[in-house]
Amino acid sequence: MTEDGGRRGRHETEEERADRMWGELIQEVRVAQTGVQILFGFLLTVVFQPKYDRLSHSDQVIYIVTVVLGACATGALVGPVSLHRLVSGFRVKPRAVRLASRMTFVGLLLLLATMTSALLLILRVATHAGFVPYLVAAVVAWYLLCWYALPLWARRRHPVRPGDRAPDLPPGGPGPGRRQGRT
């Protein structure tokens, strides 16, 4: 609702909007959670394989970094579930949705880093070739295009009208990492 009590956009109250956005966010998080949990589970088994002891020190460091990134990504992407459970019934859903959205964004960044380091490790072990960093860079560029560049391009191409701006955004428009009005 606007300050004068009127409705805007989809004609939702602040609570209705928060409920809708929460549902959308949880659906999005389910996709990312599944991917990060499968990757993290796989990573946890690698250290118990006989070949792990034969990895170079550099590859073992990459592995450890990858596991830690995977653990952090899992925490950030499961975080919204815990947040919802702990604040449910306290009438803070709009704030909880904003916080959960930020945790999800951080979780996706950590998932990107986890996937990058896992790909680097796997390709280094599988090929021992000098082109591996370039191949990993190309894949990371693809992720960045799909996950960030295209969505940001779409957001800029189809801006929200000033009256439809989300209440938590500054008057100049969204900054880095902020949601657009109609999500």
Results as ranks from 00 to 15, higher is better:
21 M>N: 13
21 M>P: 03
22 W>M: 06
22 W>A: 02
22 W>P: 00
25 L>M: 07
26 I>A: 07
27 Q>D: 14
28 E>T: 15
29 V>R: 03
30 R>E: 12
31 V>A: 14
31 V>D: 12
31 V>K: 08
32 A>R: 04
33 Q>N: 11
33 Q>Y: 08
34 T>R: 14
34 T>C: 13
34 T>A: 15
35 G>R: 04
36 V>K: 05
38 I>G: 03
38 I>C: 06
39 L>K: 02
39 L>A: 13
40 F>G: 05
40 F>E: 06
41 G>N: 06
41 G>Q: 09
42 F>L: 14
42 F>C: 10
43 L>Q: 04
44 L>I: 07
45 T>R: 05
47 V>P: 01
48 F>Q: 11
48 F>T: 09
48 F>H: 07
50 P>S: 09
50 P>K: 08
51 K>R: 15
52 Y>D: 08
52 Y>V: 06
54 R>M: 13
55 L>R: 04
55 L>I: 03
57 H>N: 15
57 H>K: 15
59 D>L: 09
60 Q>T: 03
65 V>H: 07
65 V>W: 13
66 T>M: 06
67 V>W: 04
67 V>E: 01
68 V>Q: 04
70 G>E: 00
71 A>I: 03
71 A>M: 03
72 C>N: 11
73 A>W: 00
75 G>R: 03
80 P>I: 01
80 P>H: 02
81 V>R: 11
82 S>H: 14
82 S>F: 15
83 L>H: 05
83 L>V: 10
87 V>D: 07
87 V>R: 11
89 G>D: 05
90 F>L: 15
91 R>N: 13
91 R>Y: 12
92 V>Q: 12
92 V>I: 11
93 K>Y: 06
94 P>L: 02
95 R>L: 13
96 A>Y: 00
96 A>N: 01
97 V>Q: 00
97 V>W: 00
97 V>N: 00
97 V>A: 00
98 R>A: 12
98 R>N: 08
98 R>C: 07
100 A>Y: 00
100 A>N: 00
101 S>I: 01
103 M>P: 00
104 T>V: 05
106 V>S: 04
106 V>R: 04
107 G>M: 03
107 G>P: 01
109 L>M: 15
110 L>W: 01
112 L>M: 11
112 L>A: 07
113 A>K: 01
115 M>G: 14
117 S>A: 09
118 A>T: 04
118 A>R: 02
118 A>D: 06
121 L>I: 04
122 I>S: 10
126 A>S: 10
126 A>L: 10
127 T>Q: 09
128 H>T: 12
129 A>Y: 09
129 A>F: 07
131 F>H: 08
131 F>S: 11
133 P>D: 00
135 L>S: 05
136 V>K: 00
136 V>W: 00
136 V>D: 01
139 V>W: 08
140 V>L: 11
143 Y>N: 04
144 L>R: 09
145 L>R: 10
145 L>V: 11
148 Y>A: 15
149 A>F: 12
149 A>C: 12
149 A>S: 14
